[in-house]
């Protein structure tokens, strides 16, 4: 499988994606504006509650090409954060009270400055989360990373869409499940995911298809039971994440004829409590080139942060950013459906 960009698909264009989720069919045309739903509950314009999480997308390069990827990441993507941009991030974090630095990609481990940055930022006393696809940790070049993570107290949050080979491999490619289990075992061996070690190992579950995630606690219970039973693998928490109708998941919805039903499902499941807790309210997203966004999804849609605040990490200004209006569009229904969805799982 290739990225949409490599295939020169029209869906690689964020404008085309926004056009589809706003106007693709009569049913989609009838869907209320997300802004109106927020207005109904006095949340429009959507404002930040403060920056708790500093999320950095350090590049779109990845060793995998998953069917649902909202980044359209893959081996051929060459957008990579430079050391200069990393340094701007360190400058912004230095003296800031932001506690958590969340590293995502692509496969963030593939950035050549990854280890240097983790050392620097953890030495500042920041809590570092790395979003790992797991399979990268089984490759010769990167299989030493779990030890490095342990040394720097990095929290590892891994993608594992399901506790079965069938469903995991369908979404992420043949052989993924086996490699993921191998990586989880290596992490467990170091103490990750085990009680009282303080080494956090979390899993991210996202539905393998056009349906919503169910109750996070119940799915976590199932994962724990099945991974323990089948592989003697343990982990700390499971985060359920709803697939947003953008990029490759949007491509799947279109090709499978599920787009209208999926959009209707998201809208029908709109939950005011989830809207209160959306992650863009306490997160700032830094793009590979230093551009600022309200979240990683907006980043992929090239919806830059409000023009009334700073646009680039080199000009980081927390007060100004905390006063911005958060940019929204119809894809945001994905984060407000049901129990809510964020990089940290359900929000209610």
């Amino acid at each position: 499988m290739k990225s949409l960009k490599a295939e020169a698909s029209s869906l690689a264009d964020p404008e085309e994606q926004l056009k589809i989720i706003n106007h693709h069919s009569a049913i989609i045309e009838e869907i209320p504006d997300f802004a109106d739903r927020l207005s109904d509950i006095n949340l429009f314009p959507l404002k930040p509650t403060g920056i708790d999480i500093f999320q950095m997308n350090v590049g779109y390069m990845c060793n995998m090409t998953c069917k649902h990827c909202h980044v359209d990441a893959g081996p051929g993507r060459d957008e990579i954060m430079t050391k200069e941009i990393f340094q701007y991030c360190l400058d912004a974090l230095d003296g800031s009270e932001i506690d958590t630095v969340d590293l995502t990609g692509g496969a963030p481990e593939m950035n050549p400055h990854f280890r240097w940055f983790v050392k620097e930022v953890s030495a500042m006393g920041k809590h570092v989360i790395v979003r790992s696809n797991l399979t990268i940790l089984t490759t010769n070049k990167y299989n030493g990373l779990p030890v490095f993570f342990k040394k720097h107290g990095v929290e590892v949050t891994c993608s594992l869409p399901f506790y079965s080979k069938y469903r995991t491999d369908r979404q992420r490619g043949k052989g993924t499940y086996q490699k993921s289990v191998e990586a989880l075992k290596a992490l467990n061996k170091l103490g990750y995911g085990k009680e009282d070690t303080g080494l956090m190992l979390n899993l991210v579950y996202n539905p393998v298809g056009a349906f919503l995630p169910g109750d996070q606690t119940e799915i976590e219970t199932q994962f724990k039971k099945e991974l323990k039973r089948k592989h003697n693998v343990v982990f700390n928490e499971l985060y359920t994440i709803t697939n947003l109708p953008i990029s490759r998941f949007l491509h799947f919805l279109l090709m499978s004829g599920n787009l209208d039903d999926y959009m209707e499902k998201l809208v029908q499941a709109f939950n005011p409590a989830a809207a209160e807790g959306v992650m863009c309210r306490n997160t700032i997203s830094v793009g590979w080139d230093g551009t600022l966004y309200d979240c990683d999804f907006n980043q992929m849609l090239e919806m830059k942060i409000s023009e009334h605040t700073v646009q680039h990490i080199r000009d980081f200004d927390e007060i100004s950013l905390n006063n911005r209006d958060i940019r929204i569009n119809q894809h945001c229904f994905g984060c407000t459906a049901g129990a809510g969805s964020s990089c940290g799982g359900a929000t209610t």
């Binding site: 506790y163 079965s164 069938y166 469903r167 539905p207 349906f211 119940e218 799915i219």
Partner: peptide
Amino acid sequence: SLETGASEE
């Protein structure tokens, strides 16, 4: 069943 986390099996 899918939404509540049941497997194909």
